[in-house]
Amino acid sequence: MSNANTPIDDDLLVKYLLGEVTPAEYILVENWISASTENRSEYERFKLIWDESQQIAAANVDEDAAYTRLHNRIHTNQPAQRQTPIRRLKTSHWIGLAASVVLICTVLWLTFNHVYDNGSISVVKIDSRGKVRTANLPDGSVITLNSHSTLLYPERFKGEIRPVSLQGEAFFKVAPDKSKPFIIKVNDVTVRVVGTSFNIKERNGKTEVIVETGIVKVSKKQSSVNLIPGERVTINKDEGVLSKEISKGKLYNYYLTGELICDHTPLAELVPALNEVYGAHIIIGNKALQNLPITTVFKKQSLDDVLTVIADTFEGTSKITVVRKGKQIILR
């Protein structure tokens, strides 16, 4: 990249270190590195974190084989243009590996920039896989991970902050410490607190933060908002503007309590939660129904029972009919 002031994507740097870039991408990164001393220093810091992360990532069972192969490639003494072509990893392997490495690098980057001694840094990784898991952090914070979620954090919080990194969904009960803020990195979103409870959900390029107690600061690039109890913010990957709104009910904590609590909750919010909880494919076939509010509590009921309650709740002018077409359920 010829412009020294133009940032480069971290994912591209990861691909560059793996030797997975195209010729055009290789030239792009090389030009960016050589454009300024600042860029070269940033690259060297990134590579240092990368090298530290390899030892950690290599300990994860699911990625052992792929990571070992990539580790050998990174440290080859052959110049990049003379390397023997090596078969590309399957897309699913690449995505999983890149996500793991970026997650590790995030925690290490935060830690390296806020630690003042020269002691070694160990990073703990918790992968909930297919079940809900609870983690007790060294500061007394308690984190409950939803299924298919990953949390990384330093073995000890030694600097001026308490940095962690999340993929997936988790409920945080952060131990109060005004002198050492608790910081969560979720992709390019930063959540900063000193002691509070809240839920973070990151799926399909969208990040949602809902506050239960205390005050939470959510930032993305130059935009930030402060949330208080009952408020939430939803950030799409390609959008930089953060706008908060009132959270009507508690649909987010089903994995914690087994309850879907609706408090004047619009159907347009309830339906996605039902699809996730029940693995269903419910759609609202009439746009006029989207903002209809429902107030009730669903607690470990069958999907059929839930649909019956919805249909019985709205009668008269707002009557809802449940129509099934194969695996699809349409609310009309």
Rank of each mutant, 00 (worst) to 15 (best):
Q55V: 03
I56M: 00
I56K: 00
A57L: 02
A58I: 05
A59W: 11
A59D: 15
V61Y: 14
D62C: 02
D62E: 14
E63V: 05
E63M: 08
D64I: 10
A65Y: 15
A66N: 11
T68L: 09
T68C: 08
R69L: 05
R69N: 10
L70W: 14
L70P: 13
L70M: 12
L70G: 10
H71N: 11
N72W: 12
R73D: 14
H75R: 00
T76G: 14
T76W: 07
T76M: 03
N77V: 09
N77L: 13
N77G: 15
N77A: 14
Q78F: 14
Q78H: 14
Q78K: 15
A80P: 13
A80L: 15
A80R: 15
Q81W: 15
Q81T: 11
Q81E: 15
Q81M: 10
R82F: 11
R82Y: 13
R82L: 08
Q83A: 11
P85W: 02
I86W: 12
I86G: 05
I86E: 11
I86H: 09
R87W: 08
L89D: 10
L89M: 11
L89N: 07
K90Y: 15
T91G: 03
T91Q: 05
S92Y: 12
S92D: 09
S92A: 06
I95D: 04
I95E: 04
I95A: 02
I95T: 04
G96E: 01
L97D: 06
L97Y: 13
V101K: 11
V102M: 13
L103Q: 01
L103N: 01
I104Y: 07
C105W: 08
C105P: 06
C105D: 15
T106H: 13
V107G: 03
V107P: 03
L108V: 01
L108I: 02
L108P: 05
L108Q: 04
L108D: 04
L108C: 02
W109H: 15
W109T: 15
T111W: 13
T111R: 12
F112V: 07
F112L: 10
F112H: 15
N113C: 03
N113M: 02
N113F: 04
H114T: 07
H114N: 12
V115L: 00
Y116Q: 08
Y116R: 08
D117W: 05
D117F: 04
N118C: 03
G119E: 12
S120T: 11
S122N: 09
S122E: 11
S122P: 03
V123G: 05
V124I: 08
K125M: 10
D127K: 02
S128L: 01
G130Y: 10
K131A: 05
K131H: 06
K131Q: 06
V132N: 01
R133W: 09
R133S: 12
R133P: 03
T134C: 01
A135Q: 12
N136I: 04
N136T: 07
N136A: 10
N136C: 05
L137Q: 10
P138E: 09
D139E: 03
D139P: 00
D139F: 01
D139A: 02
G140M: 10
G140S: 10
S141P: 00
S141G: 06
S141M: 06
V142N: 08
V142C: 06
I143E: 09
I143W: 10
I143N: 06
L145H: 02
N146Y: 04
S147K: 06
S147V: 01
S147P: 00
S149M: 03
T150R: 00
T150M: 00
